[in-house]
Structure formats: C-alpha cells, structure tokens
Design a binder for these strands. Structure first.
Length: 905
RNA sequence: GCAGGGGUAGCGAAGCGGUCAAACGCGUAAGGCUUAGGACCUUAUGGCUUAGGCCUUCGAGGGUUCGAAUCCCUCCUCCUGCACCA
C-alpha cells in the first residue's frame, strides 16, 4: 500500500522534475508560450495555508497548461520594498513580546532572532529562503532561475524601476503637489490603518472655511456645507474653550480654538500662533456676513466642539438641527430670523427631523445626518440663495467656492472623518504634505486607455472586470514616494524612496530577463538599453541586448495573474494602469484570476493567525498533495472554509485507484454495453474537469475528476464490469485529470501503471466524441433506478423473492415518449407540448401531468432491452433470485424508462 | 458613505428559468470486516408515507411566468477594497 501521507513520494518526484528541468522553460518558437504569475510576497514571516491556497491555484493552472502543450513560465520573486521589515527588526531589538512569540511559533531560533535585530536584511533573506523551501515542498512548478528581490539591494531591479519612473515622467504621468495625509505629530510619520490603535478607516475630509470679518480679526467658520452661508443667522463659539489668534498668510488674524492650532499649522503653510484671547469678550459682538455684508451676532453654545474644524461655527438654523436647537435655547431673545434657502418639498423638514430623533446630542446628530442627506439628494437652492438660486444642492459646489473666493472669504482645511489615535498614543491629525510626488492615475486619457485594457482582459470570475472598471472611475492620484523604508530612490529626487505599491506594477516584464541579465553590468542597463529591451526603441541594438529583447518578446505579454481579492482595487489596478501607460498594446496582460480567502473554522488566515498554520506545520502532518487538496475548497471570490477532515475523502479515492490498478491485469471480461457506457460517461468528467480548470473553478474540477469519476468506476465494477482495457483507459484518464492538482501521488500511481512517460510531460485528456452515447447513458440511469426500486419493493414485501419479472414498454410508447422529449427540449410548457403532439394517448396525459417532471432524456427500446439482458445475471446475483426480462410488454404499468416490476414471493 | 461579491441540508459547496429534496465532499447513525481500534465496504441522513408516492424548503417580504433557489423591486445580514499601507 502506498502511504498517502508520505513525504518520500513528494521528494522523489520533486527531484525527478527538477532533474529534468521541466520548470525551467527556454524559448521554443515551435510551442505556444504561457506566462503566469502570482504577486511577489513580502518575506516578513512564514508562509501559511492562506498563501498556499493562492499559489496552489496558480500552480494547478501552470501544470494544466503545460500538459496542454504550452511552454509555461511560472516564476517567483520577492518584495523587499517597504517599511515593515525594518519595523519588525526594530521590534525584535526592543524585545517586543508579541513579535518574539510569533517568530518563535514559526520556529525561528534565538540566534537568528539576534541576527534579525541587527540587520533587517537578514530577516528578509531568512524568510525568502523559508518561502522558497515551502514552495518547493508543496510542489510548486516554479522556475527558480528567474527569482529576484526588489529594492536597492538588487541594483538591476533598481535600474529597472528607475527606468519605469523616468518613462512615466516623460509621459507626463508624474506630478508634484500637495496632499493631505493622516499624521502623527509625535513620530512625524503618516498614520496608516495599521499604525492606529483607534480610528481604522478614518480619512481626511475637506472642509470649506468661510471667513467672517470682525474688525481687524477674522472668524473662520469651517463647514461641509458652504452653500448654507446664505441662511446664516449668527456665529457660534464655545465659551468654555480656549481661543487664540493665528497669523495667516496675507497677515490675516484668525480667531480659532487652541485645539485647532496644530492642524492649521500643519495644513496651511505660514500659519503661526500669535496670542491668546478671551473669547467671552467677543460674545455679543458682531461679524460681517461676506455674502451680503449684514451683521451677525457671535453667540456662545456649549455643543460647539472646539476640537472639530476651527472651533468657530456658522449657524444655519433652518438647515442644521444643532443650530435650530441652539437658537431655541441660547439665542432665544436675540430676535434672529432664520432664513430658509433650500427647498426639498417639505416645509417642516427640520422640525420633523428633530421630533423624530430627539433633542439629545445623539438625536441631533442623527437628525443632522437625515436632513443633510435629504437636502443633498433632493434640495434646490431657493430665491434666498442669491446667485445660487435655482441650482440643485448636488451641483452647487463649484459655484459656491467661486463666489466665496470672489468675496475673499474662502479657504479650506482638512478634518478627519473620526478620531484617530497613533500606536504611540498621540491623537492623529491631518497634515498637508507640500511637496509630494504623485502618479497621476486621475489622468483622463490614461483612464480611458486602462479602461480599454480592462475591457480586453479576461477575468475569473467575470465580476472582477466590473469591479476594476468601477475602480478606474474613482481612482485619484497616488503619492508614489516617501521617506524611509527599503526601496529604490526616485531617480530625479534621491531624497524620496518609491513606495511599495508603485514599484511592483510591471515587474512581470523583469522576469523575462531576470535569468540572463547578469550578462550585463547594472551600469550597462541604461534607460535607452531598457527602452530597447522592453519597448523596441531603435538605436541601442547590440549583441548583448539582442538576447534580452528576444526573451521579452517571446514571453510577454503576461497571460495570467493570480491572487486573492484584497489586491484587486490596489495592486491590480496599478498593475493594469502601468501596463497601459508603458507597454505597447500587444504586451498588455491577458487574464486575471481572483480567489477569496481561506478560512479555518470560520476565521481567515491573516499573518498573525497564520503563524500557527504554517506550511511547515502542515507538512508535519500531511503530504504535499493532501495539503494541495486545499485548492479544491472553492470556486469563485467567496471565502472558502478548509476542513482538514475532508482529506479523508482524498485518501479514500487514491487508495481505491491504487487497488484497482493492482487488480486490472486479472480482469478480462467484456460486456458490450457496460464497457461502452463507461467509455462514454468518462467524457463528461474530462469536459467538466477541463472547463472547470479553465475557469478557475477547482472545486468543480476536483469534484468531477477525483470523486465523480471514481464513483462511476465503482458503479461499473458493481454492475460486473471487468474489462482491463476499459479500466486502463479510465485510470490513465483519472491520473491525468488529477495530476495538476495532486502531482506527486499521481506520478507515483502512474509508475504503478508501468507507464513510461511522466504525467508531467503527458498530454491532458481530451473528450472522445466517438465514444459518446447519450441514449446508453440514459438507459443505464434507467437501470440503476430500477435496481433501487426493486430494492425498496423487496424491503416492503419482507419475504425473499422467488422471481422478478421486468416488463419493458412497447415500442409505440417509446416513440411517443421520444416525441415528448424532442418537444421538451424546446419548451417544457405542457400546453405547448400538447398543442404540438395532439395525441389522445393516456401515456401523454401521464407524462405531462406534472409540468416539472416532463421527460427530456431520449430513450431507446432496443438499447433498454439489450442493457437489461446484458446485466440480467447481475440482478439475479444481487437479489439472489430468477429474473425474466420481457420485451414489448402489454403490461399497462410499463413505461419507457420504467419497466413494470413484478415480484413473486 | 461609495464600489464589488455573498446568504442553499449538521458543515463545506454545486445548481443560476423547467426530473431540485438539492450533485459532490465531509460529518453523523446503523450494519459488515476486525481480537479491538483505525482503514475499508454497505445502507441511511428535511417531513409524512410506503408498490416505485406525496408535502414543505433555497436570508425576509413582494412581483413577473404555465413554471423561480434561479429574473425584477424593497429590506435584513456577512465578506472585500477605499490609497501612501504591504
């Protein structure tokens, strides 16, 4: 018996493939090429089952295409670019317990940890090697001659990235500008989601500042709804808060809450603290409304949050519940006259909202949300709104800022959508980075080009394409560089390092030359040399570059890129954009395959969670193929649950096949119809399996090739089939169909079959239409149904049967039956069928009685009879009794596909 | 909030207008084999029946159709992404 969990078998075949260099393809003009990749992983920890899920999916495709006769390239590099490796190294140095625990879980020794603390590069290299050995151990058919790492640690790669950015810049797709980021003022770094203890997902939101003059001073009110300035009645401040004066560009003196100093200083260059003021002194004074020059009182209101915006708020009671309520309480006796400036077809919107949600803080918040949404969606500016009158609120944005600018009353600032706290404990703010390099993904022409690319790409599953197109719509400029972290410096501004999502967009092209590039010195890899290799720009031809150019032309474009869904709207979209910008249309990628996440007992495998389910640990318990059975867990983008118990099913099928292989030489019985049936039926599994693999539906593929196919062989044997020729065909088909999924064990069984050729070098099975016999398949189904029926009947009778008579329906009945079938293939509407057939036969009534059970499978009287006759002895044996098969029976109950059963006991 | 994808038996997962009580797998139960366990084999696994039958289900509620898990509308709920983070 083969030990299914054996690692020996894994190693044996891995060595065999490697010895024959089956995964190190060379240019071969006689073969069609197929180039497939998975995004480069970041080697900051061990590979876990979640990784394996994705890579196995790619490997299966690679092996499948290889068997289909393609010259397949499946390379794998590693991403060193970014901050975390350095961060982790630091944490180890600081002896952070969580980090140390996670690495010890992964089997890292204390000595190695010491090295990691000293040099982050050693950490990355350690896990690169760890990934590589895991990839090998689970049988990835990767070409390791083309592996590489990114960042300045690889001069060749850095040159490649410099070339990419120079090229983008020449095309006008790089720009310099201002950019708001969430920022920690203590650590002086941007706060990504992962750097926060609170406020994940919160982002900068633009506020308009409207400047209200008060003598020499300005009260800047921050608002999300500048159009309501036409309905402003007063200004709110919070008497309990501290206020200060800031000197702004143009020597303006702004009165703002002290909480907003840092924000404004970080956002508006030139903003400087001038002095403290006592806000109480201003309550009761007036400011000028920039819109019409009218005087508005400054009033105090407790609910004004000095921490949001500037701490100065304009009050628009008819359109803001807080203000409405504020006027009712604090501004009662001021004689203010609220003005309505937006019509939504409901005069009492604001009152109703407040009544509905209540006057508590939360109630007013909800009411605000409600009112804002209604007014934004349906509101029209009315005649009180000056130059905006008649415009939809939705469309008013540009006009209002222009209007305010003309009055010199406009400024802007950013506020967070919610509270953010850095890991260091500091409250996060929005900072506007003045000089930042962007990739201009907002560029209209570029978007159009990328849209065209996406429309021509094949995606699995199909919905991915829609998602990509939608992402193109909202995508904005992306900051492409930062300070610190590993990477490649911007070629024209060496202070900046190109950030990780931007230096990993076109490296698939680099694979094509990664194995031969060392024939050059990095310095020989000039922009014009790269222009020649990748873009075919003339003038740089020389013998050394010729070979690289050839490699690129042979392997590119990329035929398939595989990954999990979380990369879709970031990495993938950039990958597509950059290809559209840099490469000729003939080198645009062809297809994308996206999968969901692997969950284990309902939880997804993240880096921290994955620490306990590493490949290494998996391999202690299971063989590579048993683990690869993971890939059979799902079909589309949904998350899939991996149940280790299901491996039992895999083991069973493998040992079943092994047993059959051992028995085959002794089986020499021929059964005309049964043999023909199996050869016909096997086509179903070949086509289902092929189609499913092609569409990345591995669940379905394995279901067909591993389970349904063996079930069919079982049935064949149970019915007395014993033809070694037929079984040999079946087993060979089984091995080939399953080889992409379970390459090791199938090679082993293939050896047991004494086949000379490795499966890895064999052809993938194709359907043999000449063997297809649908009527026979239908009739066999009839037969197995009858067996079931007899079984239940015998159970009912409770005494052993003496004789069973099976009476087959008359030929005329079959004819009418098949007429119905022919009609049912067009429509199953019983009224229609009846109209066409117009027979008074009561068989018609019976068959059409239940519309959902109208037969649609063709049957044949002769075949039915021959099949039952051929298998007659088998029935006798099963039920230990005599069987009589009657043809052309007058038995009323006998129906086509449903012989009448008579049991004598 | 915006965009995309889901919600089917104890679990995983097919089906995407008509033999659907629901493929396939796991699990569970009974029986066989075995000294025993495991493995393996057989049978069962929505309900009610018991001469090959019927009924009810596919997140909830409506609608279209001779016919809907499948198409349309509303709602509930879960997953993913939303950018300087790999």
């Amino acid at each position: 018996m083969i030990d299914v969990t054996s690692k020996e078998i894994d190693k044996k075949w891995q060595m065999e493939w490697s010895k024959r260099k089956l995964f190190e393809p060379k240019i071969d003009e006689s073969k069609k090429k197929f180039f497939i990749t998975v995004p480069i992983p970041y080697p900051s920890g061990s590979m876990h089952l979640g990784h394996m899920y994705t890579w196995t999916r790619a490997d299966i495709y690679a092996r499948f295409m290889r068997m289909k006769g393609y010259n397949v390239l499946f390379p794998q590099g590693f991403h060193f670019t970014g901050g975390p490796i350095i961060g982790i190294s630091k944490k180890i140095e600081q002896k952070d317990e969580k980090t140390l625990w996670a690495f010890k879980q992964q089997g890292v020794s204390d000595a190695d940890l010491k090295l990691f603390a000293k040099d982050p590069r050693l950490l990355a290299e350690y896990f690169t090697e760890s990934f590589k050995s895991d990839f090998k151990a689970i049988g990835m058919s990767i070409d390791w001659t083309r592996t590489f790492i990114t960042s300045y640690l690889n001069e060749y790669y850095s040159r490649f990235i410099e070339w990419q950015f120079n090229t983008l810049r020449k095309k006008g797709l790089i720009s310099e500008g201002r950019h708001p980021v969430v920022w920690c003022t203590k650590e002086n770094t941007p706060l990504g989601d992962h750097d926060r203890t609170e406020g994940e997902g919160e982002s900068p939101q633009k506020f308009t500042i409207i400047k209200f003059g008060c003598g020499e001073l300005i009260f800047p009110a921050a608002t999300l709804r500048p159009e309501t300035v036409f309905g402003v009645t007063n200004i709110w401040v919070n008497e309990g808060a501290k206020y200060v004066v800031l000197t702004m560009p143009g020597n303006e003196q702004w009165v703002v809450s002290s909480d907003s100093i840092k924000k404004l200083e970080n956002q508006i260059s030139g903003a400087v603290y001038a002095r403290d003021i006592e806000i109480k002194d201003f309550v009761g004074k007036t400011v000028k409304n920039p819109v019409d020059g009218s005087n508005l009182p400054i009033l105090a209101l407790d609910s004004v949050d000095s921490d949001i915006g500037t701490g100065v708020v304009m009050s628009v009671p008819m359109h803001a519940p807080f203000d409405f309520y504020g006027i009712e309480t604090s501004g009662k006796d001021m004689g203010l006259t609220p003005k309505k400036i937006i019509d939504v077809g409901n005069e009492n919107l604001i009152k109703e909202a407040i009544n509905k949600y209540g006057k508590t803080k939360d109630g007013l918040k909800a009411a605000t949300k409600y009112v804002y949404k209604k007014e934004f969606d349906y509101g029209i500016m009315n005649k009180n709104a000056g130059p905006l009158a008649g415009m939809a609120v939705k469309a008013v944005d540009e006009a209002v800022s222009k209007f305010l600018e003309e009055k010199n009353a406009y400024a802007e600032m950013y506020e967070l959508t919610g509270k953010v706290v850095c890991r260091c404990g500091t409250r996060g703010i929005v900072k506007v980075l003045d000089k930042q390099w962007f990739i201009r993904y907002s560029d209209k022409e570029w978007k159009a080009k990328t849209r065209r690319l996406v429309k021509n790409i094949k995606t699995y599953p199909e919905e991915v394409s829609l998602q990509l197109l939608n992402t193109i719509e909202w995508l904005e400029d992306k900051a492409a560089a930062r300070h610190g972290g590993l990477g490649t410096a911007l070629p024209w501004d060496k202070d900046w390092v190109i950030e990780p999502l931007s230096d990993s967009t076109i490296y698939m092209a680099y694979y094509t030359i990664a194995n031969t590039i060392s024939s050059l010195k990095p310095s020989e890899l000039t922009d014009s040399a790269l222009d020649y290799i990748f873009l075919g720009k003339e003038g740089q031809e020389n013998r050394k570059l010729e070979g690289l150019r050839k490699e690129f032309l042979y392997w590119y474009p990329l035929d398939m890129r595989v990954s999990a869904k979380e990369l879709l709207q970031n990495h993938f979209i950039f990958f597509l954009f950059n290809h559209a910008a840099i490469f000729g249309e003939e080198h645009w990628p062809k297809a994308i395959g996206i999968n969901g996440w692997l969950t284990v007992s309902g939880e997804k495998l993240s880096k921290s969670k994955g620490a306990t389910l590493t490949i290494k640990k998996g391999l202690e318990k299971y063989s590579a193929d048993q683990l690869r059975f993971i890939a059979a867990a799902g079909n589309g983008m949904d998350d899939v649950e991996w149940d280790p118990e299901s491996i039992n099913g895999f083991n069973q099928r493998i040992s079943f096949i092994e047993q059959i292989i051992k028995r085959v030489p002794d089986l020499h019985k021929k059964s005309a119809l049964l043999d023909a049936y199996l050869l016909s039926k096997i086509n179903d599994f070949v086509s289902k399996s092929t189609e499913s693999i092609e569409n990345f539906r591995y669940e379905s593929a394995v279901s067909a090739s591993l389970f349904e196919l063996t079930n069919e062989i079982k049935l064949y044997l149970d019915l007395g089939g014993a033809n070694s020729e037929v079984l040999t065909i079946c087993i060979n088909t089984f091995l080939k169909l399953n080889h992409p999924f379970f390459p090791h064990i199938t090679e082993e069984l293939n050896g047991l079959m004494q086949n000379k050729e490795l499966l890895e070098s064999s052809d993938f099975p194709v359907t043999k239409t000449e063997n297809k016999n649908e009527i026979l398949e239908n009739e066999l189904k009839v037969f197995t149904n009858i067996l079931e029926d007899i079984k239940t009947l015998i159970k009912l009778i409770k005494t052993p049967p003496l004789k069973i008579t099976l009476s087959l329906a008359k030929k005329q009945k079959f004819e009418l039956y098949n007429k119905i079938v022919a009609e049912a293939k067009k429509t199953k509407n019983p009224i229609e069928i009846r109209r066409v057939l117009r027979s008074s036969d009561n068989l018609l009534d019976r068959l059409l009685k239940n519309p959902s059970k109208i037969p649609d499978r063709e049957l044949d009287e002769e075949t039915e009879y021959l099949l039952f006759s051929e298998l007659k002895d088998q029935i006798s044996k099963t039920f230990k009794t005599n069987i009589e098969i009657k043809k052309e029976s007058t038995e009323e109950k006998a129906m086509p596909g449903r012989p009448a059963i008579k049991i004598e006991s």
